[in-house]
Structure formats: C-alpha cells, structure tokens
C-alpha cells in the first residue's frame, strides 16, 4: 500500500500525524511543530474527528428512542430462555408427590419483595448452600442499591425481616443468614420523576 503523504517535500504520512494526534507523542514532534504541511494535516484530522463525533451523535438521534415501537417490536420477538438454576425440593401433601421450585423463581421473589421497600433496589442475589437437599442450611447474599436519605442500618433490618418472612411463606428453605452488601448509594429515582424522561 502506498502511504498517504501530506505534501511533496515533507514526506510525513497522514497515519503518522494521526498517531501523533491521538497519542500526543511522536519521535518527530519537533518537525511536526514547525512544518506548515504537517500543521495543516493535523488541522484536517481534527476537523474530521469533530465531524465524526457530530455524525455519530446525529446517527444515534436518528436511530430512534429506546421507548419507541421499533425497539419494543424487537423485544416482543425475543425468545429469552429462563434462568431456572437449581431445583429446590418441596415437601408434598402425599409421599409420592415430587414437587420443587426453581432457584430462579426464588431469586425473582427476593427481587420483587425487596423492591417493595422504599429505600432500596435489589441487585444480584446468591443462594449459597446445598439447595437440592431439603432442610440443608442456606445463606442468602444480596447486593443492594440504597437511596439517599434512608439510613442503611434500618434499611438492612427491614430488608432482612421482610425477606425472611417472604422466604418462610413461599419456600421451605432453611435460611440461616441474610448478608446484605450495599454496593451503591443513589438518588431516589421515584423522588425525581423529571429525570426519567417520559
């Protein structure tokens, strides 16, 4: 391939100038500083960078918003496999019954119940222990995003008691501990609806 040169006398390639522009260093910096052809080349490269940024911004604008039908249409046609996880045995009314619930369903329950508390959004959840043996000790670990203005110790207490009530009602897990990690502190989304957009 023939390198693209800026001008007949100078001999520096556009690629070399581009590397200089984007890395800030060149073995040839002194020449570049003093060469009018190189300076013109750098100016053109900067213009192209600026125009490219504008074009990308326009492209994204023209792609449509995420709450418009084109995306909803794509989402409606996705077939997303469910994340079942392990099977948790349940005692049946009859000895012959073979009942179980999935780990995924329990984690969904934890999210749904946890989200009802005003101060937090539930993040990732882990059930540690042998879920597939009835009565085996299980610990729940969850990441939580807390909202400003809700004292964390009280929030953790409320979350623990709400979750252990819900888990006792809807599962037969032997939950021995609920570990809560507050991984983020944010402004309460519900309290600032103007930031949401629609």
């Amino acid at each position: 391939m023939t390198p693209v040169t800026i001008g007949a006398d100078c001999g520096r390639t556009l690629e070399e100038l581009s590397d200089y522009l984007h890395t800030g260093s060149s073995p040839d910096a002194e020449h570049v500083h003093n060469c009018p052809q190189c300076q013109a080349g750098l100016a053109a490269l900067r213009r192209l960078d600026d125009l490219t940024a504008e074009l990308i911004a326009l492209d994204i604008l023209q792609a449509g918003r995420g709450d418009e039908p084109w995306l909803q249409n794509i989402l409606d046609h996705l077939r997303l496999e469910t994340r079942a996880g392990r099977a948790i045995p349940l005692a049946g009314a009859h000895p012959d019954d073979d009942l179980s619930e999935t780990e995924g369903a329990v984690i969904a329950l934890i999210r749904t119940v946890g989200d009802t508390l005003p101060g937090a959004t539930i993040g990732k959840c882990w059930l540690h222990g042998d879920l597939t043996s009835a009565g085996a000790p299980v610990t729940l670990h969850l990441n939580v995003t807390a909202f400003w203005g809700h004292p964390v110790p009280g929030l953790a207490r409320a979350l623990r008691s709400t979750l252990s009530d819900a888990l006792a009602l809807h599962t037969e897990l032997n939950i021995t501990a609920i570990d809560i990690a507050v991984t983020d502190l944010v402004e309460d989304a519900a309290a600032t609806p103007e930031r949401i957009g629609t």
């Binding site: 989402l75 409606d76 996705l78 077939r79 997303l80 469910t82 994340r83 996880g85 995924g104 984690i107 969904a108 999210r111 989200d115 959004t121 539930i122 993040g123 990732k124 959840c125 990441n143 995003t145 991984t183 983020d184 944010v186 989304a189 519900a190 600032t192 609806p193 930031r195 949401i196 957009g197």
Partner: peptide, 27 residues
C-alpha cells in the same frame, strides 16, 4: 419475551451495573 411488559420506573433510572446484575439473575 416473557415477564412484565413494562419495567418499574425505578429500573429506568437504575445504574447500568445494577441492571446488568439483575438481568444476569434472570430479571
């Protein structure tokens, strides 16, 4: 796809990291 048709409003304001964690868990 299955699941709720509209995400709770709170999710629309949640961080990328939180959404990715929850989606990874099956939400």
């Amino acid at each position: 796809m299955t699941g709720p048709g509209k995400a709770p409003r709170r999710l629309d304001a949640a961080s990328d990291a939180l959404l990715a964690e929850r989606a990874g868990d099956g939400d």
